[in-house]
Design a protein around this nucleic acid. Structure first.
Lengths: 127, 127
DNA sequence: CAGAATCCTGTGAGATACTG
DNA sequence: CAGTATCTCACAGGATTCTG
């Protein structure tokens, strides 16, 4: 019921159409949070060139804890982005790789990371 | 001083060359964290089509708090990614836009977000 | 309108130790 | 080797109130 309040002219009119381009209750928010989690991008990029073993990942991505590596991998695997393959050898061996879907995603992460690599120094120097 | 330890043969040899592709103390880590912060990607995408006002951003990006909008914008502005322009009008008006550098970055975020939009439903349905 | 200042909380993430 | 199991906590992030 648009009661309307007498305003002295200035208010630009409630053209309330700022259309909410990014809804809160949206599946994209969940996936975005997985991909952009602290270690998500680095793990996906590390998996870019074929299968990688667990220990290899740990050393490649400096600073990641075992807990976070496991957790990040599990989430991405559950999302159908990462594939996990166990070799029943001794000592045990587990390879991680990207699924088809994951390869598409990782491909779109590369230009992003390239930009960051090119600009990071200049940005950090601002401080 | 490679003392070397007598190992019973099995250890695959310290081909310690998993080359640490992602060093911990690297400027890229900082910038990556800014861009992939909870609201970073959404803010950058929202700024993709020219200048946007503060309030407009708030409504466009549903669920963002004032604190986080301010904080995210300040960080990105400080990084030289976002430009802030104040109009000394009354009521006050502030426009945010992307810098040249920011436009390059945002352009690389679009394909990523596209992938997420296309796959989010299928991924979330797995649960 | 566009924030700044405070206070407060959940949980993402680290450290350590143990195991199939 | 490739993890899991706990314990712990800092800090990103939220809610609320105030202001130029």
């Amino acid at each position: 019921m648009d009661v309307g309040i007498a305003v002295p002219g200035s208010v630009p009119a409630p053209t309330s159409d700022d259309p909410v381009r990014f809804p809160a209750a949206c599946p994209t928010r969940v996936v975005l949070s997985h991909v952009t989690s602290r270690w998500g991008v680095l793990v996906l990029l590390a998996l870019g060139d074929g299968p990688v073993r667990w220990g290899e990942l740990r050393r490649t991505i400096e600073g990641i804890s075992e807990k976070m590596l496991a957790s990040t991998l599990r989430t991405l695997e559950h999302d159908g982005i990462v594939h996990r393959e166990v070799f029943p050898s001794v000592p045990p061996r587990v390879d991680y790789s990207l699924t088809e879907s994951g390869r598409e995603l990782a491909a779109r992460l590369v230009p992003l990371m390239d930009w960051i690599v090119e600009n990071a120094d200049a940005i950090v120097d601002r401080h």
